[in-house]
């Protein structure tokens, strides 16, 4: 009885929290099915016309391809660099280790606007080609701390005797790394890479400085459309993105466990 009333007392708060968290997502998905020409809730019928429109809009489809390429490349680059760094930090002792580990997290702490501006200027000086190279490098920096943290926490619980066992069994250090270490930490590495993919796929703030007409990503298109006028097509596009990201997250969860 008291347990039940105790739980009832929480209901308004729970409702509020889940409303704040989930209504924005639900409403985007719902309005993508409207029959109106404005993004209203589909109270007077459901249609897929905005999806049809979406898949005829070459610009959007191009952006989808660009985003996928960028996110995949970011996942690979951030995945490799993040894993290498985490490995180094866990397996060595040196002065200022904690401070340097905190520095690895700096891209999390500095506004992506500044990262974007700084990278654009620097990329210009260094003549890093505009478009894919700049966007991918910038995204890999933004995603790096996440991969680093995830792989590091897995490595901290890695049983180093597995490596000893491998070496005793005749594998040298490099063979051991490929046959034992990497396969064992692979789930964490892949989970980190999926997070990097998701971060890159949704990144807007830094990306807005770096895109070119031929390498415009989906979030940039969504932002521009929000600014210029509302069409349910944005909802359809956003919903497509949600579906992709949820699939990726489920994949990540499955591999991580």
């Amino acid at each position: 009885m008291s347990r039940l009333s105790g739980r009832l007392a929480f209901f308004p708060a729970i409702l509020l929290v889940y409303a704040i968290l989930l209504i924005p997502i639900v409403i985007v998905i719902a309005t993508s099915f409207t029959v109106q020409s404005a993004p209203t809730l589909p109270t007077d019928g459901v249609s897929l016309e905005w999806y049809a429109e979406l898949f005829q809009n070459q610009r959007l489809l191009d952006a989808m391809v660009v985003s996928t390429i960028v996110a995949s490349a970011t996942a690979v680059v951030a995945g490799i660099i993040g894993t290498i760094t985490a490995f180094g930090f866990v397996r060595s002792e040196f002065k200022m280790k904690e401070t340097l580990a905190t520095i690895m997290l700096l891209p999390l702490m500095i506004s992506p606007v500044i990262t974007g501006v700084a990278f654009l200027r620097f990329g210009g000086y260094l003549q890093i080609p505009r478009g894919y190279p700049q966007i991918i490098l910038a995204h890999s920096i933004l995603a790096l701390p996440f991969v680093f943290l995830i792989v590091r926490s897995r490595l901290l619980t890695f049983d180093e005797r597995l490596e000893d066992a491998s070496m005793i069994m005749g594998a040298n250090r490099l063979e051991t790394t490929f046959n034992v270490t990497i396969p064992v930490i692979a789930p964490a590495m892949i989970a980190g890479m999926l997070i990097a993919f998701v971060i890159s796929f949704g990144e807007f703030t830094a990306t807005q400085f770096l895109v070119t007409p031929s390498t415009t990503t989906v979030p940039i298109i969504i932002f521009n459309q929000i600014q210029t006028g509302l069409s349910p097509e944005i909802s359809a596009l956003a919903t497509t993105l949600v579906v992709i990201m949820v699939i990726v997250s489920i994949l990540g969860d499955w591999i991580g466990s």
């Binding site: 049983d159 066992a165 005793i168 005749g170 594998a171 040298n172």
Partner: peptide, 14 residues
């Protein structure tokens, strides 16, 4: 170690 031709049984198996 990988050229010594040794067998090693670890604590907790490994």
């Amino acid at each position: 170690p990988y050229e010594r031709n040794i067998g090693l049984v670890f604590q907790h198996s490994a």
